[in-house]
Amino acid sequence: MNRPKDEGLNGNEKIEQAVYALQQEATQEQLAHTLTVIRRRMKEHGQFVVAVEPSLGSEQMQLRTIRTADGASWWYAFTSFEEELKGAEPVQSTFLVDMDKLFDAALAVPEISGIILNPWNRTIQLDKTLIRITKGS
């Protein structure tokens, strides 16, 4: 299958590989490596796929959220369209967004706990602390 890829998603397979390795061996070193891989992709102007839904009574779109067992709300994003299609939900409206901008937005929205990357498969929960570490700020 030689499907054309969106430029901004090229290289995101490195993130998937790092997250897979982290799932196999959940150590501080592997977490640091995974965050470094995400940071590199961010600095290369990498993008994520995000699901959006229309905001009632507004022209704006809102990022879709997932509520975790503890009641926290998280945005979710995907490293590729293939990852998005692994979910149980029907295909949704999606957009590409710069990683850097998504991280900044997540840090600025108090009711969001962070971003869950690839919630259906090679998953990592980036809370605000991990996002700040990834951004290097």
Score class of each variant (00 low, 15 high):
L96W: 08
K101T: 08
W74H: 08
R41K: 11
D127G: 00
E84G: 04
E89L: 14
E111P: 03
A26E: 14
D104I: 06
Q30C: 10
V109Q: 13
D127M: 02
S58Y: 09
W74G: 02
T36S: 13
L130N: 04
R122E: 15
L130A: 06
L22A: 06
L22G: 05
R122C: 08
V52W: 09
I116P: 01
D70P: 00
N12R: 01
R122Y: 13
V37R: 00
A32H: 10
Q60V: 11
W75I: 07
G136F: 07
G136H: 07
Q125L: 14
P110I: 05
R122S: 10
D100F: 09
K135F: 02
E16Y: 04
S137P: 13
N118Y: 05
W74R: 03
A105R: 09
A108N: 03
A105M: 12
D104C: 11
A108M: 03
F81Q: 13
A18I: 05
T65M: 10
T68N: 11
G136E: 09
K101G: 04
F95H: 15
V91I: 15
N121S: 11
E25W: 12
E59M: 15
N118G: 02
L107D: 01
A72F: 10
Q92E: 15
G114P: 03
I112P: 02
D6T: 05
M99A: 05
Q23A: 11
E13S: 07
R132K: 13
W75Y: 12
E82F: 09
D100Q: 14
Q30P: 07
V52M: 13
T134N: 05
W120F: 12
P90L: 12
E53G: 11
T65G: 05
L117Y: 04
D70N: 07
H45A: 12
M1F: 12
N10Q: 14
T36F: 13
G114E: 07
F78E: 01
I124D: 02
S73K: 13
A105Q: 13
R3L: 14
A72P: 07
F78N: 00
G114F: 01
L102A: 08
I112C: 02
T65V: 12
G57L: 00
N118V: 02
L9W: 01
Q125M: 14
R3T: 11
T79K: 02
M42W: 01
P110K: 10
D100W: 09
D6K: 05
D70W: 00
V19K: 03
E25G: 11
V19P: 07
A106D: 06
F103N: 02
I38L: 12
G11S: 04
P119Y: 01
G57A: 00
T65H: 06
N12A: 10
L56V: 08
E53C: 11
Q23C: 11
Q60K: 14
D127E: 07
A51M: 10
I115Y: 02
E84V: 04
F48N: 00
D6R: 06
S93M: 15
G8T: 01
I115D: 03
I66Y: 01
A77V: 02
V91S: 15
